[in-house]
Design a protein around this nucleic acid. Structure first.
Length: 466
RNA sequence: UCCGGUGUGGCGCAAUGGUAGCGCAAUCGGCUGUUAACCGAUGUGUUACAGGUUCGAGUCCUGUCACCGGAGCCA
């Protein structure tokens, strides 16, 4: 059996043509026995959502012994004839000539049953959940999105850049950082100030990155347009359906882009991704639309077909102030917009993605470019209905003096950022960029409610198993 | 981290302070070109953990842990 080339189920179902002899391999999802002397076995190999139905005549060689092992979860290989199906529900089916069991699954112990399981339960068996319809579909969609992120930027001449995972730059207190050290925690070397990091592996205090942006700017100011796509770490004790301690982020950074160019790119990017996934993952998306969220496809088409709303922060505040909607947190110019405010704007006022830009400088980081009004900066957030912020970005401050002053105001140590300031000292250029949370994108595209169910192995507070 | 909720057979859930049940799955049998198959029978429990109140606790109280939802923070 091993000598013949195996064909994936997706290919066979797409063609829908009869094949005199074919080999398929996969995991049994369900078996139904007929007393007519044969069994129906459905197998799935992850190449697509659909199973392949196998007709196994009990007369085929060794079947009585084999049949006992063909429970849900077992892995088998089958050689047979692919023929038009006599039954309803599938076009073609495989009439088995021989079946080989690679790995049986003890039905008394195998946790997955042919019934619905809660996502909470599946999280406890993260090593087996990819064998369910939902997780197979999530991971195929996730894969397609990753692929089209690369094609979007590659088609536009952006350079894919790998920024460091281990870093010394504390990206402006942007959340808690995971420390990286080889010091003996039970007995660390000490000096007057506390722990003596000169004796640590890198000779100074290091952490896992919370953003590749600062390093991305370095390469944008040489290669013009770059993007990063890699893991990001936040040690915030955050327990929500939208947060992970380890997640993947896409961060393009572009020389010669102002804020408007930046927003244009972000919008084109989002709409490209949705359009691509609608075209290439239709079976999986229809599954999500049927089982997870009945309005999913309708909303996705809305995103592809309509322009995003764009409003300045000041106007957003004005809209919220004059609205009759009762908010838990009141709104005034200068405050951070709360989740309830963002949701109100994207879900009720505009009912589509909203870009808010020109935020007060007091609530944004030091590196964002100051506007001429002296009180706002060139920041922008893209808000999606139901999900909230999916993109945060800005035009960067490219004036040396202004940036140095901002850093002083925010009490940052300039010695840590000398290389960053140097970019403004030598051949500075207007430039912009943004960050997109990859898992939040997958969440929105699939309709999955919890971010822990769109990443293979979620890392959250108190949870790093598997 | 804060607020609220939940924790009971493998899974999903029920049970006024008084004998812990139901559905699905599983096992066995029947039926059938079946397809979330169907029909019948069978087995399945330290009620998260540690204390407390009570004649008696799954149920009430205290603490711990875990999970879920929301908030903060963020992508």
């Amino acid at each position: 059996m091993g000598k013949k080339k195996r064909v994936k189920i997706r290919k066979l179902l797409e063609r829908g043509e009869e094949v005199p002899e074919v080999l398929v391999m996969g995991w049994v999802r369900t078996r139904r026995d007929s007393k007519g002397g044969f069994s129906f076995i459905e197998i799935n190999d992850g190449s697509c959502l659909s199973n392949l139905q196998i007709i196994a005549d009990h007369k085929i060689e060794g079947f009585p012994g084999v049949a006992m092992k063909l429970h849900a979860g077992s892995c088998i290989g089958v050689i047979g004839k692919l023929v038009q199906s006599m039954g309803k529900g599938q076009n073609v089916e495989l009439q088995a000539d021989a079946i080989e069991v690679y790995g049986p699954a003890d039905t008394e112990e195998y946790p997955l049953q042919k019934k619905h399981h809660s996502f909470e339960f599946l999280r406890e068996i993260a090593h087996l959940r990819p064998r369910t319809n939902t997780f197979g579909a999530v991971m195929r969609v996730r894969n397609r999105l990753a692929y089209s992120i690369h094609t979007f930027f590659q088609d536009r001449g952006f350079v894919y850049l790998n920024t460091p995972i281990i870093t010394t730059s504390d990206c402006e207190g942007a959340g808690e950082m995971f420390q990286v050290t080889t010091l003996n925690l039970a007995n660390p070397p000490l000096d007057e100030a506390g722990i003596d990091y000169t004796q640590d592996f890198f000779g100074e205090k290091t952490s896992l990155t919370v953003s590749g942006q600062l390093e991305g700017e370095v390469y944008a100011l040489a290669l013009s347009e770059i993007y990063t796509f890699g893991p990001t770490f936040r040690a915030e004790n955050s327990n929500t359906s939208r947060h992970l301690a380890e997640f993947w982020m896409v961060e393009p950074e572009m020389a010669f882009y102002d804020l408007e160019d930046n927003i244009d790119l972000a919008e084109d990017f989002i709409r490209y991704l949705f359009s691509d996934v609608l075209e290439h993952c239709s079976e999986d998306l229809e599954f999500f639309n049927r089982r997870i969220d009945k309005t999913l496809l309708e909303r996705h088409k809305g995103i592809v077909e309509n322009r995003f709303e764009r409003i300045p922060y000041s106007e957003a505040v004005h809209l919220l102030e004059k609205s009759k909607h009762k908010f838990v947190y009141s709104v005034e110019w200068g405050c951070n917009l709360q989740s309830e405010h963002e949701r109100y704007l994207s879900e009720e006022v505009f009912e589509k993605p909203v870009v808010i830009f020109n935020y007060p400088d007091t609530i944004k980081p030091f590196y964002m470019k100051a506007n001429e009004d002296g009180e706002t900066v060139c920041a922008m957030d893209v808000l999606l209905p139901r999900l909230g912020e999916i993109i945060g970005g800005s035009q960067r401050e490219d004036n040396y003096e202004v940036l140095a002053k901002r850093m002083k105001e925010k009490e940052l140590d300039p010695s840590h950022y000398q290389w960053y300031l140097d970019l403004r000292k030598f051949g500075s250029a207007p430039h912009s960029g943004f960050g997109l949370g990859f898992e939040r994108l997958v969440q929105f595209v699939t309709g999955m409610e919890n971010i822990r169910d769109v990443i293979p192995f979620p890392r959250t507070p108190k949870h790093a198993r598997f």
